[in-house]
Each structure stands twice: as C-alpha cells, then as structure tokens.
C-alpha cells in the first residue's frame, strides 16, 4: 500500500485517502470471512455427522461435508493466489495480520455516523407503542 501521507486513516472519515486500495481491502476482508465460514461449515457438518444415525441423514451430511471441503479448498487457493493468505510464510502472514489489526482499530475509533439517525417524530404514530398485552 503506497501512500504519500504518513497515516491516511488518521484523517477524518470523509478523506478520499481512506478509499485508497479500498476494493482490494474489501475483497481481502470478505474473502477471509468467507474462508472462516467455510471452515466452520466443514467442522459443523463433521460434528453433526458423528451424531447422525439414520442412513438418510448420514448420506445428506456426508455429501454436504464433501462440498464444504471443496468450497474451503477453492477459497484457500484463491486467497493464496491473490497473496491475501500466506499459509507457508509465517512472517508475511504476521505482517498482514498486524496491518489489518491496525486498520480495524483505526476504523473502530472513527465516528462513522456523526449525524443523529433518530427517526422519532417522523411517523404519524409511534411504532413501538404498547398494545396493552403483557410486556415482552
């Protein structure tokens, strides 16, 4: 990530410098999320398979487990190809994880929705008005 500014993220939220490399960073984040979900899907299917007894459920879960493994492999291969994931180079992966941790902390510090978003008073009636039933 090349940038002339010392720390583009520390500027205010609307600064265009923050959009630098945004599509790639978005793809990387969503791919990581996808990989984690695929991984959990495989684990969930495997655990469920050990609990199943009927042949129908076992066949279904085994088939879904196989597909889950396939999906996980596809995502992992794509991420390695794109250099978003470095399973063999610990040093590289460590740098990348550090970078995304810093980015995440900076995003968390930002005030993303500075204007009040309360829509109370814009409706002709109160949506949450109690109807006289027992409280939830």
């Amino acid at each position: 990530m090349e940038s002339n500014q010392a720390d583009p993220i520390r500027m205010d939220a609307l600064d265009p410098a923050n959009s630098l490399n945004m599509p790639e960073m978005t793809d990387m984040t969503l791919a990581t999320d996808f990989l984690v979900r695929a991984k959990e899907g495989v684990r969930n299917a495997a655990v469920a398979l050990t609990e199943a007894v009927s042949p129908e459920a076992r066949t279904l879960l085994k088939y879904q487990l196989k597909q889950g493994i396939q999906l996980h492999r596809e995502i992992a291969e794509l991420m390695v190809r794109k250099n978003w994931f470095h399973p063999y180079e610990l040093e590289e992966q460590f740098k990348l994880d550090g970078l995304s941790a810093v980015n995440t902390v900076e995003i968390a510090k930002q005030k993303l929705f500075p204007d009040p978003a309360n829509r109370k008073g814009m409706f002709d009636r109160t949506p949450d008005e109690p109807k006289g039933g027992p409280p939830a």
């Binding site: 599509p23 978005t26 793809d27 969503l30 791919a31 996808f34 596809e74 995502i75 794509l78 794109k82």
Partner: peptide, 9 residues
C-alpha cells in the same frame, strides 16, 4: 465484492 473469481465462488 469486486474480484470476479471471489464473486463467482
């Protein structure tokens, strides 16, 4: 997502 390969998966 903007990457076509990721989108396809």
């Amino acid at each position: 997502v903007s990457d076509p390969a990721l989108k396809r998966i």
